[in-house]
Design a protein around this nucleic acid. Structure first.
Length: 933
RNA sequence: GCCCAGGUGGUGGAACUGGUAGACACGCAGGACUUAAAAUCCUGUUCCCGUCAAAGGAGUGCGGGUUCGAUUCCCGCCCUGGGUACCA
């Protein structure tokens, strides 16, 4: 019987489901291997061909590892809290849960038909109460922890309280808010509970703090940076403003150094690590206190200095002014009466500017003089203080020391305001622009004159420390993560407020269920949607009304798969100690600074408090490339009045006509040739379409764009499974190119893969399509083909080069077809090797070869035997002077000198040598490859 | 601007540590089988010059360099994609 992929695939998918073939065990004598995919958000559009790319790769790997004798955990689930379901709910009143479950059903059906070897018994959904119960529980652990810098790990807040009671704040080296108090044990004990709790909030790893957020009044919610485009909300296009709000935050900055260091211990793509490094943004430098000049301004404040952060403390003698951010807290105090109007005007102007304007204006110099001065702590010179929006309030101390000779922005600023520019290195050339060099010897720099960069930096830091005017300091760009969203479809924060103080609910009260609401919009008084819930009140106070952000549920989900049904813990200790961490994680690089960073943070925290065993959650990470859309166009003839006609011009001829391009459904185009009959049926108004053809065909135009419905370039895996089957789809997605490379989807080549599978099927059958294999001894040539592919596939899978494997399969099948190979032993091994790529057809053939159903998935991967690959004689390429090439037939048994003699005796070589001795004979790996004459 | 990845036939791509560039597949052209179609099989297919063939020349974005030998290593430039954005 011909290759009936539909029957075969249905049959085996059913078999796997009925028999729990891929159920992983939490204990085994086999070594463990954990293969994880980034779980999808179940959107209403369903899967397109780009989604399964990574899943197919990870499935091949998981299946391969099973054959290699590993106990493989390969689970799947859904990141099912999210904005689209909520937006849909706002528009239709449909509960997000209903939409989400419908979408999940679609996803599941689509995933099933591709034949993945997921252990579905471990499925998780982040929106399910028995899952988010533990997300809330982890939030509570964070709330109950602080970061001890001395121990370099998170510790229990109870331990901190104990220390305060005994010793006050002395001896505590913590990551905390800037404005923490210092107090004695007596002072602590004398504080009322409210004061104590407020103080502790400054230490907790999740805490409430007033932060600046993107507030969209029209939508009534906070938006993440990527939801704001050009100062307007991405959805609806409403204006967005900066607003200060009390928000839950995560003290991820406590882990900045460990998140950075940890990158060196994991096998991730270098570009992705680099993205995380940049995001963390460590810079090593010094903080310097510039004393405020009292005579210039009568300060009310207790602050007597402005602190700056610099990475070039060696340039301190080149400082000719100081710049602080317009939002800096000392601006009002520092402004002299004469300058007040100018400063106020500048601040107003800055406030009006959107983020975008500020960026666009990067090149124009602006600022204003406060009228006040500081003194340079090292040479006592008076330094004027300016405000300018190129200094950011949120980074460092919101103040910089300006060295116009070494920094281009400072240079432009100095030119604009006519300020001094002092060169500080003898090699500096500052005639037209600043020169940030570190080469040369210092000049105009007091006690560091004549020193080099390294010496000078050390000397200046030492001096500043001696004077108490500064110290070496490390700064990070990364900010604490805001954790609250004014939305409905997310995890409720397990907190209630009493007397203005946040309290955790008890563990017995978990999960704190998401309440029902009448509408999914903010309340009339501007509170989040949860404010609409009736009968939703904690006995002691009011529940927190914001919910957790999308990344909360995805920051620990790989642990839940280890023990998905545990209701006593997020996962049992035994399960965690067995599976430990994810060995291979496959997903997109767009999560580099979101999910992948937050997950590493939560994992480190969970390790600190003894919940998990590994410091890093994902040992090896592979980024699959994005699949772009490949749009096809038809060209509609435009008449003299500029109206479109019903005549369409083939792409090669459009130069001769006036046309307008029109997206056409890629599914009615094959190899850029339009199926004109299908086109006429595609849309009613094209029923009478006429075509101007070239060579009897209508050729379409092509462009690479994002895959989207409106561009008619979406290719649905369902259609391909119907036409060619899952095995063909799986292999074709791999064949398309390197896994990590982004590429446009193109269905054109899929026939080749389909043909390959048919050829493979045919190997097992005679001309009448009867199953027919022989039990003869395999021939040498057959063994050679087989062992070539055994080795090749193993090498390819280990280095994630799946595309070249597919090619090798095709070569092997062509060879074996030429050899008319129907040998049972050969075919059996071939089935095992191919089974991770094309599991359905392999299962079918495996059973036809006389094996037990279901045993293929755990059959041992065949052992490669190198002796079959040895060739007796082969064509030996020789070049002379790296140019002329010729082939000699040489036996492998000859040694190098014998080959050399043979080469010299060759007539062509003789002709080139012309009686002379060769100057040099190049031998690579025991082979002569080149002769230099 | 800065950081990263990439640029190979008509197309997707291969060439793993510097050693026969273009594997494999699509497409295209020609042929076989067939009443015909589908399916299948065979041959050719980087370009130029050669009316077949042989022989020759050029060739991995561009310009240089190292080397007996470079798609691969080094320097400079151009282009495409991704990240980031006044980070002191």
């Amino acid at each position: 019987m011909d290759y009936q992929f539909k029957d075969i695939e249905q049959k085996w998918q059913q078999f796997w489901a009925d028999n729990g073939t891929f159920k992983a065990d939490n204990s085994s004598a086999k070594p463990k291997y954990y293969v994880l995919d980034m779980f999808p958000y179940p959107s209403g559009a369903g899967l397109h061909v780009g989604h399964p790319l990574g899943y197919i790769a990870s499935d091949i790997f998981a299946r391969y590892k099973r054959l290699k004798g590993f106990n493989v955990l390969h689970p799947m689930g859904y990141d099912s809290f999210g904005l689209p379901a909520e937006q849909y709910a706002i528009q239709t009143g449909q509960h997000p849960l209903v939409t989400t479950e419908a979408n999940i059903a679609t996803y599941r059906r689509q995933l099933d038909q591709i034949g993945f070897s997921f252990d579905w018994s471990r499925e998780v959904r982040t929106s399910s109460p028995d899952y988010y119960k533990w997300t809330q529980w982890i939030f509570m652990q964070l709330f109950n922890s602080w970061y001890n810098k001395d121990a370099d790990k998170a510790e229990s807040i109870a331990k901190l309280v104990e220390h305060f009671e005994k010793n006050g704040s002395a001896g505590i080296n913590a990551v905390c808010d800037e404005e923490v108090l210092s107090f004695s044990a007596d002072e602590w004990n004398a504080m009322d509970n409210r004061a104590q709790q407020n103080e502790l909030l400054k230490y907790r790893l999740t805490y409430l703090r007033e932060s600046t957020v993107n507030w969209c009044p029209a939508l009534g919610t906070v938006l993440a940076n990527d939801e704001v485009k050009d100062g307007f909300s991405e959805r609806g296009g409403y204006p967005v403003e900066q607003k200060k709000m009390m928000q839950w935050s995560m003290r991820i900055t406590a882990y900045a150094e460990r998140l950075l260091q940890g990158l060196d211990t994991i096998d991730w793509p270098e570009p992705l690590k680099e993205m995380q490094r940049n995001w963390i943004g460590k810079s090593t430098g010094a903080s310097v206190k510039f004393p405020i000049e009292k005579t210039a301004q009568n300060l009310q404040s207790a602050t007597h200095f402005i602190e700056v952060f610099t990475t070039r403390v060696d340039t301190i003698f080149g400082v000719t002014f100081l710049v602080i951010a317009p939002e800096h807290e000392l601006v009002a105090e520092l402004t002299t009466p004469e300058q007040k109007a100018e400063i106020q005007a500048y601040i107003d102007q800055t406030k009006k500017k959107s983020e975008l304007d500020r960026m666009a204006d990067a090149k124009t110099v602006s600022g204003a003089f406060t009228g006040s001065y500081v003194r340079n702590p090292l040479n006592d010179e008076l330094v004027p203080i300016y405000i300018a929006d190129y200094v950011l309030a949120g980074y460092g101390t919101g103040a910089v020391m300006a060295v116009p000779s070494g920094d281009q922005r400072d240079f432009l600023f100095a030119k604009h305001f006519n300020l001094n520019i002092v060169p500080i290195l003898d090699t500096q050339d500052i005639t037209t622009e600043a020169d940030p060099t570190k080469e040369g010897k210092y000049i105009n720099s007091d006690f560091i004159n004549g020193l080099t960069y390294k010496e000078a930096t050390a000397a200046v830091v030492a001096k500043l420390e001696e004077l108490g005017a500064g110290r070496a300091k490390i700064n990070f760009r990364m900010r604490d993560a805001i954790f609250g969203r004014q939305r409905y479809w997310g995890e409720p924060v397990p907190v209630y407020f009493k007397d203005g103080l946040p309290h955790l609910i008890t563990e017995q009260e978990l999960p704190l269920l998401l309440p029902e609401v009448d509408k999914y919009l903010p309340t009339e008084s501007g509170e989040p949607p949860l404010g609409r819930a009736t009968n939703w009140k904690h006995p002691e106070g009011e529940y927190e009304l914001s919910t957790m952000p999308g990344w909360a549920g995805s920051s620990w989900y790989w642990y839940r798969y280890m023990d998905a049904h545990n209701d006593a813990a997020f996962a049992s200790k035994e399960a965690i100690e067995y599976w430990k961490d994810v060995d291979l994680y496959i997903g997109g690089s767009e999560h580099a600074t979101g999910h992948l960073l937050y997950s590493r943070f939560w994992n480190k925290f969970m390790k600190d408090i003894g919940l998990v065993v590994e410091e890093e959650p994902f040992k090896k990470l592979i980024n699959q490339g994005m699949i772009q859309g490949r749009s096809n166009f038809v060209y509609r003839l435009v008449d003299d009045e500029g109206r479109g006609t019903n005549t369409f011009i083939s792409h090669g001829l459009i130069g001769q006509y006036k046309t307008s391009p029109l997206h056409v459904d890629v599914n009615i185009v094959e190899n850029e040739v339009l199926n004109t009959e299908k086109f006429k049926k595609w849309r009613d108004d094209f029923a009478n379409a006429e075509f101007i053809l070239e060579n009897g065909k209508y050729i379409c135009g092509v462009e690479v764009e994002k895959m989207s419905k409106s561009k008619f370039n979406v290719v649905n895996p369902d259609d391909l499974c119907q036409r060619y089957g899952a095995d063909t789809l799986r292999m074709y997605e791999m064949f398309l190119g390197p896994l990590e490379q982004s590429k446009p989807w193109n269905t054109n080549g899929i026939e080749g893969v389909f043909k390959f599978l048919r050829k493979f099927w045919r190997l097992f059958h005679n001309d009448a399509w009867e199953f027919k294999v022989s039990d003869n001894e395999p021939s040498k040539a057959e063994l050679k083909s087989l062992h070539k592919i055994i080795r090749k596939v193993e090498e390819d899978i280990e280095r994630f080069s799946f595309n070249t494997s597919v090619s090798s399969f095709m070569i092997a099948i062509n060879e074996l077809t030429d050899l008319k190979c129907n040998n049972r032993a050969i075919l059996q091994d071939l089935v095992v090797v191919l089974s991770s790529y094309a599991p359905h057809i392999c299962e079918e053939l495996w059973v036809m070869l006389g094996n037990e159903a279901g045993s293929l998935s755990y059959a041992p991967y065949p052992k490669f035997n190198p002796t079959y690959l040895v060739e007796d004689e082969f064509a030996y390429p020789i070049s002379i002077n790296g140019k002329t090439k010729m082939n000699l037939n040489i036996s492998l048994s000859l040694d190098v000198s014998a080959i050399e003699a043979l080469v010299r005796a060759n007539a062509d070589v003789q002709r080139y040598l012309d009686g002379k001795e060769p100057k040099k004979v190049i031998v690579v790996k025991g082979r002569i490859v080149n002769i230099v004459v």
